[in-house]
Simulated scan of single mutants.
Amino acid sequence: MKQVLVMGGTEFVGKAFLQQLINLGYSVDFLTTGRRRSTISGYTTHIKCNRKKRSDLTAALKHKQYHYIVDISAYDKEDVETLFLSMDHTKLERYLFLSSGSVYCPSDTIFLEDSPRGENSHWGKYGLNKKEAEDFLISKANEIPFVIFRPPYIYGEGNNLYREAYFFYNMALGNPILIPESNTNVQFIHIADVLRTILATFENRHAVCQSYNLAHRETITWKSLMSTFKKITNSPSKIIEVEQKFLTENEIGSKQFFPFRDVSYLMDTTKLTKDGLPTPAINLEKGLERSYKWFKQQRDFVPPRHSMNKVDFILNAYTQ
């Protein structure tokens, strides 16, 4: 039986990978700080330690070897480098690193895997740190059989981020929804497609030491996104477009009233097909239908703390 280590495993993406790998019959360990209890059964070991402390990680992984590592919780070079300095990876067949489309430099063009990567003011240190983690892996191509994935916004059942849940919750109450007035185009990917494509690289020899964009091909505008939400929820909520002039005059960023950055974000995924990997198949409407079904089952849902602190201010200005 092949051994798998999931870095992460108690929230959204990591939790989904953990459950799917167990379902597929792998022997699965997962490593987290231990602050959250796992609600999943069937795994081999829940390893609890701080991955940033090399001594702790070395002790936790002593005598362990894995065929596959799925790394959801690495956010910078230090996270990746410390992991490989702390473990025996002689049996490792794949190291799967969940990076981000935010590694690309700002551009109005569609991103290819070889598009310039670097600092992007829209994403700040998050994107730059992911890029530096990628660079470390690329520099170790002779030692680490990595595969890098760059998704846009991941959504779906179990999402702990206040994104689609923000719209489901407020539309259920009939609250007005604010969106930026812009021509922004974005892409999404459902969690089931993330699992399907990434796990397909376990046995795909073409994927070794490659990077892949990972997005559904649909191009989504904020208006089309809201139309889809309203169709699924059958909500009477009014959609209010907030002018850029108003935002500039009041020094308000999109994340202060909207759960997404107002920046175009499109990636080409033809390389997946070229290398024999499955392309994301779940369109936004079908994916959000699944998400909404899951959301309605969360009877004790309470909106989490978030950065959207200008919603009332904007509503007051636009509804006077």
Rank of each mutant, 00 (worst) to 15 (best):
R261N: 01
L21G: 03
G253N: 11
N185L: 13
K286S: 14
H306L: 01
G14Q: 07
T270Y: 15
A16Q: 15
G42T: 10
G34H: 12
Y95W: 08
L98E: 03
D300F: 10
G174C: 06
N23H: 15
H216K: 08
N183L: 10
R196L: 11
T221Y: 00
T319W: 02
I40V: 14
S41A: 13
Y95T: 01
G127L: 01
P280A: 10
A59S: 15
P280K: 04
I22S: 01
A207G: 06
R196S: 14
F301D: 03
Y43S: 08
Y292V: 03
S99V: 02
L61I: 08
C209N: 15
G42C: 09
N129G: 10
Y153T: 09
G9N: 06
P304K: 00
D262T: 00
G101I: 04
D193C: 11
D262V: 00
S115N: 09
H63V: 12
Y95F: 12
E119S: 14
K296N: 11
R37T: 14
I69M: 06
T273F: 13
Y43M: 10
S139R: 13
Q297E: 15
E11T: 13
W123A: 03
L284N: 01
N142I: 13
Y75R: 09
A192N: 14
K140P: 04
I154V: 14
D268Q: 12
N50S: 13
K140L: 05
N159S: 10
E285D: 11
P116M: 11
S227M: 15
K296R: 13
V302W: 02
L284Q: 00
T39V: 14
G124P: 02
Q320D: 09
C49N: 05
E249A: 05
V208N: 09
F229R: 00
K91R: 14
S264Y: 08
F17P: 00
E78M: 10
D268N: 15
V302M: 09
I240D: 02
F313I: 00
Q320S: 11
E157H: 10
S38Q: 14
L137R: 00
G101E: 04
F188G: 03
L5F: 04
V13Y: 07
Y169E: 01
Q244V: 03
V208M: 15
F30H: 06
S100R: 01
T228W: 02
I252K: 00
L195W: 08
I148S: 03
Y104C: 02
L128M: 10
I144E: 01
L128W: 04
K77N: 12
E78G: 08
I47K: 08
P116W: 05
E157L: 12
T45S: 12
Y265A: 07
R299Q: 14
S99Y: 05
E132C: 08
I138T: 10
K53N: 15
